[in-house]
Amino acid sequence: MADKIFQLSPGVRWVVEPRGVQIIDEYSRRSISLDHPRSAIWELLMRGHPEEEAGDMLAHIVELSEKYAASEMQSAIDEWINEGWIESR
């Protein structure tokens, strides 16, 4: 697994809500809501944890197998990059 660090794409803001994370794109006016566990993945990545480290933490936090956590992490990252929410730093 590549140990990449990710950052917000320009114009993207995110807000922690009681039940997850709300993400807003100033430019396209899109928004998405993330529930657990994706909100946890988002927070870990956006707080600067490298991908691999975030995967380990996620496995611990949500009590998943490391393999399943890594798979969830990869799937989320691919989706968010593809949709323009985040980019590799």
């Binding site: 794409s9 320009p10 114009g11 794109d25 100033e26 430019y27 396209s28 006016r29 899109r30 323009g84």
Partner: peptide, 26 residues
């Protein structure tokens, strides 16, 4: 103005960027 200022500081490598496409979506 914010969007335009962003374009002034970009690298103009449109193939590697999604900013303008996202501005257009909005």
């Amino acid at each position: 103005q914010t969007e335009f200022e962003l374009l002034l500081q970009c690298s103009h490598v449109c193939a590697d960027c999604t900013i303008c496409s996202r501005i257009a979506q909005g």
